[in-house]
């Protein structure tokens, strides 16, 4: 609760240099002093929670509304739940979420296949547009990819072959 000036009467000079014009947030913020209410304002009605919603540990609970898209699930969901045990100021929070995001990509492919859908990764990556607007670049990329793969496969084959010969000896 906000204190009154008389509550500070024991502090000599309290508020004597206060300048209401010193408001560097103007005009972005229309300062009203409402910040001093903290979280005691009248909140909007609470959205019912029908799916699992993770919330930052820097707040006491859910917000009045929230999105219900893609609730946490699978291995990525486990990692996300772990991530939310850290505060937002902690790298463990964000790095865990990035790890979960990467795992989630493979879960997405698995889910597609389980539902009988083979993802068209060529189309999903928009390579049709690359072919249309940057045919030369697209061909260069494909040729480079084929060359790198061929060289890598050749090297791997050679290494494996030598290893086998050594074993025989």
């Amino acid at each position: 609760m906000k204190k009154k000036p008389e509550d500070y009467s024991h502090i000599k000079g309290w508020g004597i240099d206060a300048d209401p014009e010193n408001e560097p947030t103007y005009p972005i913020k229309k300062y009203t002093g409402d910040d001093h209410q903290r979280l005691s304002y009248a909140k909007p009605p609470q959205q019912p929670s029908k799916v699992e919603i993770l919330h930052s540990n820097e707040r006491p609970g859910l917000t009045s509304v929230f999105g219900t898209s893609s609730p946490p699930s699978g291995l990525s969901g486990l990692i996300r739940r772990h991530a939310f045990t850290y505060s937002e100021g902690n790298w463990g929070h964000w790095l865990s979420l990035i790890l979960a995001d990467r795992i989630n990509v493979w879960e997405g492919i698995a889910s597609d296949l389980l539902h009988g859908h083979i993802p068209n990764i060529f189309a999903e990556r928009g390579w049709n547009a690359e072919l249309k607007y940057n045919k030369k670049g697209a061909i260069q990329k494909v040729v480079t990819g084929v060359l790198v793969t061929t060289v890598a496969a050749g090297l791997l084959y050679q290494l494996t072959r030598k290893k086998k010969k050594t074993n025989w000896l």
Binding site: I28, Y41, H55, S56, R59, T63, V65, F66, F84
Partner: peptide, 29 residues
């Protein structure tokens, strides 16, 4: 996404609403 009644919305900081994003306090919904 702004509730219009939290202290931030009431001070026209509609990009900093405190009632639209449970996952992070640093950004509104």
């Amino acid at each position: 996404i702004a509730c219009g009644v939290c202290p931030f919305c009431k001070q026209e900081l509609y990009g900093n609403c405190h009632e639209s994003n449970p996952e992070a306090t640093a950004v509104g919904g």
